[in-house]
């Protein structure tokens, strides 16, 4: 290791600015959110912001609207993640086959496009493509003999549209993560297994899967975190509607805080969401990394 003089001071000069700025923009607001969550903090009446103790928290925890939004968020995760992983696995296995040449490169480039597309634009595209009258989706399913569907005006269908875009945008990510995992399988091991059996499922289950566990872990963690964060796409496509059919947790907090102007309540919701995120990440890490270690 290097030996510098005044090591502590040196380390401070290198790390200090980053740490301090992240404390200021990342942690200070959180502290302030904790403060507002214990007060009545209406944007329309900031003159009087009395301390109300746990009142906001009690309200949130017993509030059906909050838990419904939470439920919708996890429903979205539970509906889209299995499909993303199944499709992603299929694409990864396909791309892993030898001898595809430039078609593989082309596919990999194609897969980049959904991931890079601005979330807000995906939502706007949703409005255009899923429109009942002018939308191309109804035209395409019309070719298959299906009569036009009222996508965005109907609760169930609007939620399906959100699931569809989530799958469109993040299946490529799953595919590429799993493909990276497949390439870590030692070539000799895989070839030996393939000589042994023609059954791809057996090869996947017994030979390739152990090498995919880190990638799958990453996908579980990241997709959970990203679904809890999901805002832009849903906001631009449905604004949480119709009614509250697609009001995910971050849309609910945004509505309470900035359209109902109740910052105290919204902060309490946000803090509960934050605690949940931390607990979930810790559970995931503990559970999965134990699996990996075995």
């Amino acid at each position: 290791m290097l030996r510098y003089q005044n090591r502590r001071l040196t380390i401070f000069w290198f790390l200090g600015p980053a740490v301090i700025s992240l404390l200021l923009v990342g942690i200070a607001p959180l502290v302030f959110a904790v403060y507002t969550s214990f007060h009545r903090y209406q944007l329309t009446n900031l003159r009087s912001t009395p301390f109300v103790g746990f009142k906001n928290y009690l309200f949130v925890l017993t509030d059906g609207v909050f838990w419904e939004a939470m439920g919708r968020t996890f429903t979205l995760l539970l509906m889209s993640l299995p499909i993303q992983i199944a499709l992603g696995m299929g694409i990864a296995l396909l791309l892993h086959k030898p001898g595809l040449g430039y078609l593989r490169t082309l596919t990999r480039l194609g897969l980049v496009i959904p991931m890079a597309t601005t979330y807000a634009v995906v939502g706007l595209l949703g409005q255009v493509m899923f429109n009942i009258k002018y939308g191309v989706i109804n035209q395409l399913i019309g070719f298959l003999g299906v009569s036009p569907i009222n996508w965005l005006g109907d609760s169930t269908n609007a939620f399906a549209a959100v699931v569809f875009w989530d799958i469109w945008q993040w299946t490529p990510f799953c595919a590429l993560v799993l493909l990276a995992g497949l390439t870590t399988v030692p070539g000799e091991v895989e070839e030996a297994a393939k000589l042994e059996t023609k059954n791809w499922w057996k090869v996947l289950r017994h030979v390739q899967l152990p090498f995919l566990i880190p990638g799958l872990t990453a996908l579980f963690i990241l997709r959970t975190a990203d679904t809890l964060k999901l805002f832009d796409m849903v906001f631009t496509m449905t604004r949480g509607g119709p009614g509250s059919a697609t009001e995910l947790i971050s849309l609910l907090i945004q509505r309470v805080g900035f359209r109902a102007f109740d910052q105290g309540l919204a902060s309490a919701q946000a803090i509960i969401l934050l605690i949940l995120t931390i607990v979930l990440s810790m559970l995931y890490i503990r559970f999965f990394y134990k699996e990996v270690a075995q």
């Binding site: 992240l22 507002t36 907090i253 803090i271 995120t277 990440s281």
Partner: peptide, 28 residues
């Protein structure tokens, strides 16, 4: 550099990825 708490500091930087931006948007 080697110093105490390095792993924790690194971990703290990285876990910012998990926090939902709406949590920061209100107080900010």
């Amino acid at each position: 550099f080697e110093f105490r708490g390095k792993r924790d500091l690194w971990f703290w930087f990285i876990t910012n990825r998990m926090v939902s931006p709406i949590v920061l948007a209100l107080p900010f």
